[in-house]
């Protein structure tokens, strides 16, 4: 299984930290993405590569309803966000746009930035070296939306 590089963030990362409100008026996610985590991790957007994952503490994505927050992460190629817990709107938005979000209680305390992990979404297992951590599997209807690539693709497919 593919290995992913970890970016580590702590508790209560809010949506203003993910993408600040002054950038929400840029006309595309493509333009917005370079300002991701600007206030707390300036080098993030220039160094992140396709397939990287975010591992965070509790309440990731709290604050505003801005869907641009999960969208910039997806646009930058983030493969998944693994957190101890998520804020509700962020979690729902992520599913709707097709960004995998997984809850794993134990990974956070056993991982450092730049570590490599493997995520098995179907079985809810995250591997680091020889260690395995249990994570959530997504509820079935959410998995269908995610597998379709997001809510729009799901609705389009349903309409066909």
């Amino acid at each position: 299984m593919e290995q992913s590089r970890v970016w580590k963030f702590n508790n209560d990362i809010d949506t203003d930290q993910i993408i600040a409100s002054q950038y929400l008026l840029l006309s595309s996610i493509e333009e917005m993405k370079k300002y991701t985590f600007e206030s707390i991790h300036k080098d993030f957007s220039s160094n992140v590569i396709e397939g990287d994952v975010i591992v965070a503490g509790e309440n990731f994505g709290c604050g505003s309803s801005r869907e641009q927050a999960p969208r910039v992460l997806k646009e930058l190629g983030i493969k998944a966000v693994v957190a101890k817990s998520f804020a509700r709107i962020f979690y729902r938005n992520s599913i709707n746009i097709g960004l995998p979000v997984v809850i794993c209680e134990d990974l956070y305390d056993n991982i450092s930035e730049n570590d490599l992990i493997e995520i098995d979404f179907t079985n809810g297992i995250i591997k680091k070296d020889n260690k395995e951590f249990k994570s959530t599997k997504l509820p079935e209807h959410m998995q269908i939306i995610l597998n379709s690539g997001g809510l729009i693709e799901y609705l389009n497919r349903k309409a066909e």
Partner: peptide, 21 residues
């Protein structure tokens, strides 16, 4: 908008959602 919860003041169930939703 996430502060849509405000309407709970008059006993409505109101909450914020993303733009795609």
């Amino acid at each position: 908008d996430s502060h849509t919860t405000t309407y709970g003041a008059i006993g409505a169930f109101s909450t914020g959602i993303g733009y795609t939703e």
